[in-house]
Simulated scan of single mutants.
Amino acid sequence: MVLNFAHRGSLTEAPENTLSSIKKAVAHKAKGIELDVQLTKDNHLVVIHDHRFKRFNKNYGLVQAYTLAEIKQIDVGSSFSKEFAGEPLATLAEILEIVPRNTILNIEIKNIPVIYPGIEETLIHCLAEHDRMDHILISSFDHVALKKVQELDPDIPIGMLFYYRLLEPWKYAKNSGLRVASIHPNVVYTDKAFIAACHRYGYKVFPFTVNRMSQYRKLVEWGVDGVFSNNPEIFTQS
């Protein structure tokens, strides 16, 4: 079965990484949902992709400079449409309360270029506190963070994110010493040979971000294990 992830929830229908966006993805019966976590000034996991708020037309500083209470006062919904005016960012804890337990959550640690000391411990503690240690995949471009996750809990599946075109990333993953479950490459260089090589080394392949149905069909034909997509027509496929 191909496992597709709703990228930051259903971001074409609601402001990304908000409760509304996640609820839209759940309503579509998405088998997987991807979201991004960072730490607030007072050490809460807030769900946001960028390290600043410019994506939401807000001229604030870094996420880490604000407490959760301060961030909850920031209206991110109105940048999407009047329908969502007043909607704030969500916390991971809030999202864990609404996502069905059989939905796989890919939680990306956004640890570059801002490094959040201790985010790995905070994340695992949050998951344990909400009894959500199953159906979880933790990914990051920061492979040191993935190493810390594995040291804290070797049973949590981890996914290695790669943005640039590297030489034989499947060999890098194998030589990293990590028990990598999946490789998450940029779709622009994901082809049949790349997928086959990853599979030979025992890794699933989940490219980002696949929004065209024609591109998705080609990847499935090549044997991809799933994709991250903004397109409900794709992320509801299985």
Score class of each variant (00 low, 15 high):
2 V>G: 07
3 L>G: 05
5 F>W: 14
9 G>S: 11
14 A>Y: 02
20 S>W: 05
23 K>N: 11
24 K>T: 01
27 A>S: 09
32 G>L: 12
32 G>M: 09
37 V>K: 15
39 L>N: 05
40 T>R: 07
44 H>W: 10
45 L>T: 06
56 F>W: 15
58 K>Y: 05
59 N>S: 02
66 Y>L: 13
69 A>R: 15
69 A>H: 08
86 G>F: 09
87 E>V: 11
87 E>N: 12
90 A>W: 03
100 P>S: 10
101 R>Q: 05
105 L>D: 02
107 I>C: 00
109 I>C: 06
111 N>Y: 05
114 V>H: 12
115 I>P: 04
116 Y>N: 00
120 E>S: 12
121 E>D: 14
124 I>C: 02
127 L>A: 11
128 A>V: 09
131 D>I: 08
131 D>M: 11
151 E>D: 15
164 Y>V: 00
164 Y>H: 05
167 L>R: 15
171 K>S: 06
171 K>R: 14
173 A>P: 00
173 A>M: 03
175 N>M: 06
177 G>Q: 04
178 L>G: 04
184 H>Y: 06
184 H>A: 05
184 H>V: 07
186 N>M: 06
187 V>L: 14
188 V>P: 02
190 T>D: 08
208 F>N: 09
213 M>G: 03
215 Q>A: 11
217 R>M: 04
229 S>D: 09
233 E>V: 11
236 T>G: 08
